[in-house]
Design a protein around this nucleic acid. Structure first.
Length: 602
DNA sequence: CTAGGGTTAG
């Protein structure tokens, strides 16, 4: 007789399990950590943690409540995990944005000759999303073709989803697969439309949307999101009006779209009209107000949100803090910091990082440092945010010290670290150090210089007056220079009165960024300094032609009595604009009297 | 399969 080894299932085992049955049925959907911990304790007591029905659910529950280590622990204690256990762990890593761990589990599975099923591949594909791992997706695709798991529509649908979010080549592959599929369900259509809208292919997306046999909420919301992400709020609104029904996602999408399009009043109307409000909807509008520097509105709304029973999560804090950092409204940032401290939940590293960035961008480096020093578990972003904060405020030496500390504490620098470091050198005039870091970064830290690093070098060399070297570097770059690089160089030309070099740069720059007022203004100042008034007049004309009606870019702002005031080049929109310019002229006059020589007179 | 999310050079 053949010997089969199965776990001993005695009557006691069944009764123990039945006792927990009810609690176990939805365990894998539970994200409440306290609840999960409680059930975990009961499972341990009943000695069911190695059971092949219970363990995968437990892994899923730990993953949902963001306890990935506990999930891994559960898995490691299973003597002979089956495919469900492996799938649960792969899914857990995918959900916790650890794609490489997900694949490590998959390879372990192959090593044990465990056969993947129609759940394994979709979970793996999920892990690929956002990673630009086209070859990996192709590898999975060929695995699937070999195993014949195509028949389950779940599998090709997952392929379409991950392919279509993986660049132009991926999108083509997704479209090919989509066309070749004989049977499609609504998820197939929705995934394809989602991929097209994410790639900005709105016309193609709408064509499919129009063709599809049945549409559900997801189809409508996907199209809506596509238009709002493109900034086409007219089309979005028309679609929104045509929707047979709307849910909270539809309303949030509209609020977000109007916020980004700068139509904060419409955003507010949508918010007020939305029949239900969740934390995402609140977060979106508060961030929208904060981004535009509307301190009072943002603060009031934040207080109102605190009065609801809705619990702000990490995304809420991060989103609003980032908006505060962008517009420089520290008072709201501080308010959020205070309510984080008041709540008994400990601040996650991501939120702390957002706090550091907010304080640093608002110019309060002490507060940024306090948060930085108080973080329990720093990550590379914490260091980068602090480093960048020190760098942009001219504390070059302190930034370099912080970098040494970072290396000493065995953190691995990434490309952002190097940007911060080079930026620190440039702002502190440490040309030699900057050169050293730039030319050794690949060898020492394994980071290949990208366009941002070249940008830092343009600034470093340009400021230091090494214009020739900067131009040589520009021509030796392995990538096409962008507007930011050329703008940096133009700024350096201005600093060192290099009108001829400026002329050469501007040809390309004005082609890349024809509607940016700052570039024209910079260029006209350079020509004015050189006394080339013909060129000045020419630049002015070009500017009028290309920027008419466009919003000027680049602004500074100050916060005064709950309102943020923006200052932009050549802006005359303020009602007391004449007074303001008169005051500037008077200040310039007074400065000249005490010996300050402005670079440019007009 | 659909909504908010931390660090990037002028």
């Amino acid at each position: 007789m053949m010997q089969i080894s199965v776990p001993l299932r005695t009557p006691t085992w069944f009764s123990r399990r039945r006792l927990l049955e009810e609690k176990l049925s939805d365990l894998h959907k539970c994200s409440n950590l306290e609840h999960v911990k409680q059930i975990h304790a009961q499972i341990l007591k009943a000695d069911l943690h190695q059971d092949l029905y219970v363990a995968p659910k437990l892994i899923a529950a730990f993953s949902l409540s963001r306890q990935i280590l506990s999930a891994v622990n559960v898995f490691n204690q299973i003597p002979e995990p089956n495919v469900h256990c492996y799938n649960a762990l792969i899914r857990a890593h995918a959900q916790n944005s650890q794609p490489s761990h997900a694949f490590a589990v998959f390879f372990e599975m192959q090593r044990c000759e465990m056969c993947p099923d129609n759940f394994t591949y979709p979970y793996l594909l999920k892990a690929c999303i956002g990673q630009s791992w086209l070859p990996v997706i192709q590898m999975i695709h060929s695995h699937i073709e070999k195993t014949g798991l195509y028949s389950d529509i779940f599998v090709p649908n997952a392929l379409i989803d991950s392919y279509s979010k993986c660049g132009p080549c991926g999108l083509t592959a997704a479209l090919n697969l989509f066309t070749s599929m004989e049977e499609k369900d609504i998820v197939t259509w929705n995934s394809m439309i989602g991929g097209l809208t994410k790639a900005g292919e709105l016309e193609k997306a709408y064509k499919l949307f129009d063709e599809m046999p049945v549409r559900d909420m997801v189809s409508w919301n996907t199209m809506l999101d596509g238009y709002t992400k493109k900034g086409d709020m007219d089309k979005a609104f028309k679609l929104f009006e045509k929707m047979p029904e709307r849910n909270i996602i539809s309303w949030s999408t509209m609020v977000w779209g109007y916020c980004k399009a700068g139509d904060i009043d419409m955003a507010r109307i949508m918010f007020d009209k939305s029949p239900a409000k969740n934390i995402i909807l609140w977060t979106t509008l508060i961030s929208g107000y904060a981004e535009r520097g509307l301190v009072r509105e943002a603060s009031t709304l934040y207080e109102q949100m605190e009065e609801t029973r809705l619990k702000p999560d990490d995304a809420t804090m991060i989103s609003i803090l980032a908006a505060c950092a962008e517009s420089g409204i520290m008072c709201l940032g501080e308010k959020i910091h205070a309510s984080i401290n008041r709540s008994r939940y400990k601040c996650s590293t991501k939120v702390s990082n957002a706090l550091i960035d907010m304080y640093a961008k608002c110019g309060c480096l002490e507060a940024a440092f306090d948060v930085f020093n108080g973080i329990g578990k720093k990550d590379v972003v914490s260091w980068n945010a602090m480093l960048q904060g020190l760098a942009v405020h001219g504390h070059g030496k302190k930034a370099l010290e912080l970098f040494s500390r970072m290396i000493h504490e065995e953190f691995e620098p990434d490309k952002f670290t190097l940007v911060g470091l080079l930026c620190a050198c440039s702002h502190a005039g440490l040309v030699e150090e900057g050169r050293k870091y730039f030319y050794s970064m690949e060898k020492v830290y394994g980071i290949v210089p990208e366009i941002e690093h070249y940008g830092c070098m343009m600034d470093l060399l340009g400021r230091g007056g090494h214009l020739k070297e900067a131009f040589a570097l520009l021509h030796s770059m392995p990538m096409e220079p962008n507007a930011k690089i050329l703008g940096t160089l133009l700024g350096a030309c201005r600093m060192h009165n290099a009108a001829d070099l400026a002329r050469a740069v501007s040809v390309h720059l004005l082609k890349l960024e024809p509607s940016d007022v700052g570039n024209y203004s910079l260029l006209s100042n350079i020509y004015a300094q050189a006394g080339d008034w013909t060129s000045v007049a020419d630049v002015r004309m070009q500017m009028k032609r290309h920027t008419g009606g466009q919003k000027p870019s680049g602004a500074s702002s100050i916060e005064l009595e709950q309102k943020v005031y923006d200052f932009t080049v050549l802006d005359r929109s303020h009602p007391r604009s004449d007074d303001i310019y008169q005051m500037i002229d008077r200040l310039a006059h007074d400065l000249k009297l005490v010996g300050y020589a402005p670079v440019v007179e007009e």
